[in-house]
């Protein structure tokens, strides 16, 4: 006979599953843990939230860009956590994920172009040097 599922267990499981869904706060929190190399306890302390509440927080949808302040406020007031800290976490993850996703498809972006130009200059310099050596010899 199977044991009935408990609420705490299913919520923790769901929060784990939500970590692979970018629409959920669980994904944001997991990314933050990864970026900052934190433990869940550290993150809970930073957000000023009790550990057992972390899976519940993860099951909330992530704040929308166009309603960022109100969404942050809504989530923070529900869980009684530090809204400034939550906003910081979301912003950090947003910025890092924007940079990492842009990296792959930003052939024409300024960052890559600048890097390329420097590389080209170095190559050119090397070529010129080798040409000079050859002409001297």
């Amino acid at each position: 006979m199977k044991q009935p599922y408990s609420n705490a267990r299913t919520l923790v499981f769901a929060a784990e599953r939500a970590k692979i869904r970018p629409d959920y706060l669980a994904w944001v929190l997991a990314k933050c843990i990864e970026i900052e190399d934190l433990s869940e306890v550290d993150l809970a302390r930073f957000l000023k939230i009790r550990m057992p509440q972390l899976p519940r927080l993860g099951l909330c949808l992530r704040p929308r860009r166009d309603h960022f302040a109100t969404d942050i406020e809504q989530i923070s007031s529900k869980f009684g956590l530090d809204s400034y800290a939550l906003a910081k976490v979301v912003r950090l993850v947003d910025s890092v994920s924007v940079m990492t996703t842009k990296k792959t498809d930003s052939r024409d972006s300024g960052v890559l172009m600048a890097a390329r130009a420097r590389k080209d200059k170095r190559k050119q310099k090397e070529k010129e040097e080798s040409r000079d050596k050859r002409s001297k010899s």
Binding site: Y24, C60, R62, R64
Partner: peptide, 16 residues
Amino acid sequence: QGDRTASEEVASLLLT
């Protein structure tokens, strides 16, 4: 309506 915390409530109510 875009409530961000309703998903948590739905999960708490229906999951188990």
